[in-house]
Design a protein around this nucleic acid. Structure first.
Lengths: 224, 224
DNA sequence: ATTCTATGAATGAATG
DNA sequence: CATTCATTCATAGAAT
């Protein structure tokens, strides 16, 4: 019943690419899906949608082509990661080589046949001891001292800066993300949890997800 | 020969055949390790092994390659979390349906790949399908089942995953986990909190860990 | 057809 | 437990 072309990944509206029928492999987002995803990302500040949001988003995007929750999940995950990665390179405090394709060799020792090589091998002793709380799960948090420590780590930076992004995309024109009509958002409770704000010049007055989504397709999709 | 294949990783066969050995610091499970971990997870109901179990498991898996306790710990954490997450944004929270899915396909008795568990597995190293690179290659570990599958346009659940994961999920999945030899399961209680083991929808009539583990490398060989 | 690149998918490791 | 991050593997399409 639904317009979702369950097979054959919708053709791209732009470009040629007439249906290619490569279904069953990886998801190939349609231009509309991408457009909306980016809009949600940049104009609504959605970076890591929660399960609920993911569900709604994918449900909404389904009208533009086959898509599943995991696709949405990965999309945001990747988009965010790559944006961050890109930024990290440009502002990297210690401009490493970064782009040198590594394609070739410089095999770092170790002989493939036996593997290991460097590690002191498995010393049965000193196994982890981080977790211990109650019966099962435990948080390693800091323990884990093992033979790994013998290895020489090179600069381990672990900085997780939160936001900051730029309007790189803006490829598509006017976003009419305007909240106009009423909706049946009876359950958008935690929607705010992931609303990130970016530090600066983002116009983005993030609206609620349903609001945003609703603008893409006039109204109601399904009624469960 | 030896199951010492802890070199793990190995290159992917595509294109050029030069191994890329990223010598990363992170644990790269061998196919055997994964096979066993999954078996413990699915066929023995181990979800959050306690420190003691972790220790034994990792010690056991060590024969298949380098591994530490924390790896086991994280593996279970992640596996469980992802299985759950997958379900979260795959399943419609408002739709109680969705309880059947798959499970009807493969022989319930024991799953083809990870199954065994019961067999003394005289040859610890290898069956499994070809690859060893990261064990990945086309096996998406998790199912990501969505309504798409419910529609089953082609009437096929081709989960490109031979691993046949899931099946956990409060299912019954009749598993005759080898009720053969005497088990002195006096110690698998571990859970201190006794009965709260798997709160409710717990699957699997777990067997004692040692029992399970013992089946993997019953007769052992190598023995350095 | 082969190579390259952008990006989907996966997963180890953390953190809260 | 849920979330997040970093890396890496895999591949659809474009470029060559």
């Amino acid at each position: 019943m639904e317009p979702t072309n369950e097979d054959a990944v919708a053709s791209y509206s732009t470009k040629g690419a007439f249906l290619c029928r490569q279904s069953s492999t990886r998801w190939t987002p349609t231009t509309d899906q991408i457009r909306i995803l980016k809009d949600l990302y940049y104009n609504n500040g959605i970076r890591s949608p929660n399960a609920d949001q993911i569900q709604r988003i994918s449900a909404s995007l389904r009208q533009y082509g086959k898509i599943e929750g995991k696709n949405v999940f990965y999309w945001f995950q990747n988009h965010k990661a790559r944006e961050r990665q890109k930024k990290r390179f440009t502002t990297d405090p210690h401009h490493p080589i970064q782009k040198f394709r590594t394609s070739a060799n410089f095999a770092p020792s170790n002989d493939p046949s036996t593997g290991l090589a460097l590690v002191p091998s498995s010393s049965p002793a000193l196994p982890y001891f981080g977790y211990n709380s109650r019966e099962s799960s435990a948080s390693p948090r800091y323990g884990w001292v093992t033979e790994n420590q013998l290895k020489a780590p090179y600069g381990v930076y672990h900085y997780k800066d939160q936001e900051a992004d730029e309007q790189e995309d803006d490829s598509f024109a006017a976003r009419e993300t305007l909240p106009l009509f009423p909706m049946h958002n009876e359950d958008f409770k935690s929607s705010t949890t992931s609303s990130n704000y970016y530090n600066s010049n983002s116009p983005v007055p993030y609206t609620s997800l349903e609001l945003s989504l609703s603008s893409y397709f006039s109204q109601s999709h399904d009624a469960h």
